[in-house]
Design a protein around this nucleic acid. Structure first.
Lengths: 115, 115
DNA sequence: GGCACGCGTCAAGAAAAGCTGACACATGCC
DNA sequence: GGCATGTGTCAGCTTTTCTTGACGCGTGCC
């Protein structure tokens, strides 16, 4: 992760990405589930009732926004498993923090891509 | 608006609506602009470079989420003008606050409609 | 080998969000 | 009247986002 100043959002594009990552009921549930315990995708899929391909995509979105992280681990019986866990993020949303973040927002409707 | 406990989000559906309202560069700019000064739509449209129909729609979304409010006023020369201003909202986004809000989230992918 | 369980990806359809260009209405001013 | 400025709405197109149903790959176990 490249940012430690989690509070007071300073980068508009990043804020937008976080908002986009959180703007979905499934993803909120996923964050909630991972807050209780780290988990690997197949199990998380079963517990949340989300299909694997879909869950995969949602996790990607969350990870791209830096809200969760993943690590590939090997279970006792040799299976590769990807574990996800939430990062301890803190974002304060107020008119002022938004006004501030807006100053560092790239042009108009430009959907930012951090490839 | 029906909620005064702006901090600590407790209602999942409401949180989702706020996130959705903020998840857009134009709307962030609008909030920022209104933070500096209240404004009426036509002028705001000129200043932000957003077309009126579009701005209108964005303002509706923001208002529906309770982030801005509007009042219809009459200018000196008798024209009806709709003024918008931001509400002093405060939302804290953390894994825990989200986990909490998730408990009061309506079924799965159900996009809430507060008609 | 066949089955269970993990990982991941792709194509394609369905649904939601974003945006534009009319259009309608009202008032004040020259 | 004609023009400027304000309000609002609607139809329809474009772009994103969401979602599902195949696939492919690998390992351990009976």
């Amino acid at each position: 992760m490249s940012r430690d100043d989690a509070d007071a959002v300073s980068d508009g594009d990043h804020l937008l990405k976080v908002l986009g990552a959180l703007n979905n009921p499934h993803r909120l549930r996923i964050v909630a589930a991972l807050t209780h315990e780290r988990n690997y995708v197949s199990r998380l899929a079963r517990e949340t009732g989300i299909s694997r391909p879909l869950l995969h995509m949602h996790l990607q979105r969350l990870e791209a926004a830096g809200l969760v992280t993943s690590t590939l681990e090997l279970s006792d019986d040799g299976k590769a498993m990807r574990f996800y866990e939430v990062t301890p993020f803190v974002y304060q949303l107020t008119p002022d923090s938004i006004a501030l973040a807006t100053e560092t927002l790239s042009r108009t409707g430009q959907r930012e891509e951090t490839r």
